[in-house]
């Protein structure tokens, strides 16, 4: 598609997309945030007609959900459809259809892969003795290069592809990015486990019994999956509370 047919207002939408979850709610989820982020594009299209603008805002405030980093794909595509004067019903159906994949892909790629990968690598730096500010700086910079890159790319993709983002996303195959990052994440997790074991001040310096207990706990998590999380956290809190009580009573 040539440049001139693309709607304007992209930078404003990109900035506002950072606030798309500003009013996250159980009724429309990101619905009103979606309209809020789309406003720069809508104002350019309907700026002269307050009634048409109000109706457009109302349409785009309906229920919407997506991963926040991938929501710009939908914002861009819908800005494009609006500026191409596609009919209201088609836009509504597009908005409905795009929710599912943008949520699922984002959860897999960002929450289940990119975030743990950067967090695990930063924790490895910490246990390898890198000073705190360096660890935090590395985490924030690296993580957000991926984060903001995804937002900018997504908005561009949406504006460029319009209704055909489905075909473009199939070709790009974000799921395969996630699978490619999983190998490095497994290695990083291994390194982190090793570092927590052997670093100065780590488990092995406390004693072999603690290392063995931690190995048992690791296996509990490995077998139980997410069901094991809350019981483990509560057992930790319980054990520490017990030690404290023992201190008061003795």
């Amino acid at each position: 598609m040539s440049h001139d047919t693309r709607p304007r207002g992209g930078f404003g939408m990109l900035m506002r997309s950072l606030l798309i979850q500003g009013a996250w709610n159980y009724r429309t989820m990101l619905g009103s945030g979606f309209a809020f982020a789309l406003l720069p594009a809508l104002k350019r299209l309907y700026g002269n007609d307050p009634n048409a603008l109000a109706r457009a805002i109302e349409r785009h405030s309906e229920h919407f959900n997506a991963h926040p980093y991938l929501a710009p794909i939908a914002l861009g595509a819908i800005a494009r459809l609006e500026s191409d004067q596609v009919d209201v019903e088609t836009i509504r159906r597009f908005r409905t259809a795009v929710r599912g994949p943008l949520g699922g892909l984002g959860d897999t790629l960002v929450w289940a892969t990119w975030l743990p990968l950067v967090a695990v690598c930063s924790l490895v730096l910490y246990w390898f003795g890198v000073p705190g500010w360096g660890v935090v700086l590395a985490f924030v910079l690296v993580y957000n290069v991926g984060h903001l890159g995804l937002r900018v790319w997504g908005l561009w993709l949406g504006l460029d592809a319009g209704r055909d983002v489905g075909a473009r996303l199939t070709a790009v195959d974000l799921g395969s990015w996630a699978r490619r990052l999983q190998g490095p994440l497994v290695i990083g997790l291994g390194v982190l486990c090793g570092a927590v074991l052997s670093a100065p001040g780590g488990l092995s310096s406390i004693g072999p019994a603690w290392s063995a207990l931690a190995a048992v706990a690791f296996v509990l998590g490995l077998v139980g999956g997410h069901r094991a999380w809350r019981p483990a956290a509560m057992a930790t809190v319980g054990a520490i509370a017990f030690i404290g009580l023992w201190g008061i009573l003795s």
């Binding site: 259809a97 994949p101 209704r163 489905g166 075909a167 996303l169």
Partner: peptide, 11 residues
């Protein structure tokens, strides 16, 4: 509708 099918199939 081909474009809608592509979107839903992504899920």
């Amino acid at each position: 509708s081909a474009w809608e099918q592509e979107l839903y199939a992504l899920g």
